[in-house]
């Protein structure tokens, strides 16, 4: 384990949305601040800094993580994914993002990044998630604008589209 000095800025290298990025942080610097102010990835938002609102949720080595409850120095060498990396490779909106737009599942959009990151992981792991599962998952997020119903609708539709995509290769079969 590296020995860190409280007053010093330490070099931290991460893979952020597939790209290697390096910055510096004091041991006490929150990962949310490191992402936003050191690496300039301001798509991740900070809503409470005590882990309840969920706005700052990112993926750390594939798992949803509160970046406000994580220190930057903890993630040296890790894979980080944030909302900036959720789009399709051609720059258009990804499936989940597009469903959010069509269902008016955001208003001010401040909490949205965290919700997208949680849902993106969850739909990957639980492709058959139903409304109750999604409501339980989203109990870790606060949205004050939408009343949640359109978010659930968007997530359910995204799940359906993603399932259909998974099925496509099998349906095609070798002879088609």
């Amino acid at each position: 384990m590296p020995i860190l000095s409280a007053g010093q800025r330490h070099k931290i290298t991460v893979t952020l949305n597939g790209e290697e990025r390096t910055g510096h942080a004091e041991p006490r610097m929150l990962l949310s601040d490191f992402l936003r102010h050191e690496l300039g990835a301001t798509g991740t938002h900070v809503g409470c800094e005590h882990g309840v609102c969920g706005a700052c949720t990112i993926k750390l080595d594939g798992q949803p993580t509160r970046s406000c409850l994580t220190l930057a120095v903890q993630v040296d060498g890790s894979q980080l994914e944030t909302v900036e990396g959720l789009g399709a490779s051609d720059g258009s909106l990804g499936v989940l993002q597009d469903c959010f737009r069509r269902h008016f599942a955001l208003q001010c959009g401040f909490c949205t990044a965290g919700i997208l990151m949680s849902l993106d992981t969850y739909l990957r792991d639980q492709p058959n998630a139903g409304e109750d599962d999604l409501r339980a998952l989203l109990s870790g997020h606060i949205c004050r604008c939408t009343g949640y119903t359109p978010i659930i609708a968007a997530a359910l539709e995204a799940a359906e589209i993603l399932r259909a995509r998974e099925l496509q290769p099998e349906q095609r079969g070798p002879d088609v």
Binding site: T42, G43, E84, L86, G87, L93
Partner: peptide
């Protein structure tokens, strides 16, 4: 009509700028 919101693309991709951004 319930047209899609031009606001949303920037918000959904994290590129919109709020006060602290």
């Amino acid at each position: 009509r319930s047209v899609e919101r031009p606001e949303d693309a920037a918000l959904l991709t994290g590129s919109q700028r709020f006060m602290d951004d």
